[in-house]
Amino acid sequence: MAEQAIKADNALDDVWQKRSKVATPRARIWRRFRRHRAAMTSLIFLIIVAVLAIAAPLVAPNDPVKLYPGLTRHEPTSEHILGGDLAGRDVWSRLVYGGRVSLSVGIVAVSISVVIAIILGTLSGFYGGRVDMLIMRATDVMMTFPGLILIMTVVAVLGPSIYNVMAVIGLLGWTGMARLVRGQILSVREWDFVMAARCLGVPDRRIMLSHILPNALAPLLVAATFGVAGAILTEAGLSFLGFGVLPPTPSWGNMLIGAQSINTLEQYWWLWIPSGTAILLTVLAINFVGDGLRDALDPRMQIS
């Protein structure tokens, strides 16, 4: 019975795909996204940052961890274009390699959050009742804790390391997204095509995965984009406090640790301005891309 229903379901999809001659949704979204000038500029900027991070050994030939004799607090030279830090390491190399760390922490952490949010949000929205109650109350409790303090505490228990930071930011960051998925599912669930699938006898799991979820994903994608920006900021804050990525491994946050002394702040700009600006610009660019995505995905703007 279920197999027959799935067959019928697939057949309907085929019919739809053969008949429709309009542009695919993806092409339409891309066309709208391109019109958002800030988002396009930001996307290009992010691609450059990502390429720099991936090609780190080529663009920053100096070792980011090695202590160069005589480079301590040295101002920028042609050899070391952003000078040396307090321990005599090359700042430009640390900036480029730190980008690798910061970006990957952001992306991995949010991927963990997204998976949890999809699972819990879908269960909550699809089944409702007691399951929903339990999950949503747990979400309320999680949202009551000040994020950074809670993350700091858990990292203190587990010990600071780059993997713990990724895991903890990811494991504690799903609440807003889970609510979003739940809300989306609650509204999509009532649409006629879901009823049609039910009437065909399509099993729950398939209705959830191939009918409801795809329709709930657009806002999740936007939220996840903003989430990456937030995770990068959280990692930077944690590492700045000394509870995140620990030196000598470079991260944009821990490069600013030295700037806590007034002396460094006043005399050695290359020790704190580059990494702080890198965080600011990257997070700004990610937020603009998120904004552009939201505009492009919003069905209410389809007419224009």
């Binding site: 946050g253 006043e266 704190w272 702080g276 600011l280 937020n287």
Partner: peptide, 22 residues
């Protein structure tokens, strides 16, 4: 407004100390 959301608070604090105090 966008810059505010993207600005790491501690970096902004450092910039403020540098400009206003120092």
């Amino acid at each position: 407004a966008f810059a505010g959301v993207a600005m790491p608070g501690f970096f902004f604090a450092l910039v403020l100390i540098y400009l206003v105090s120092l």
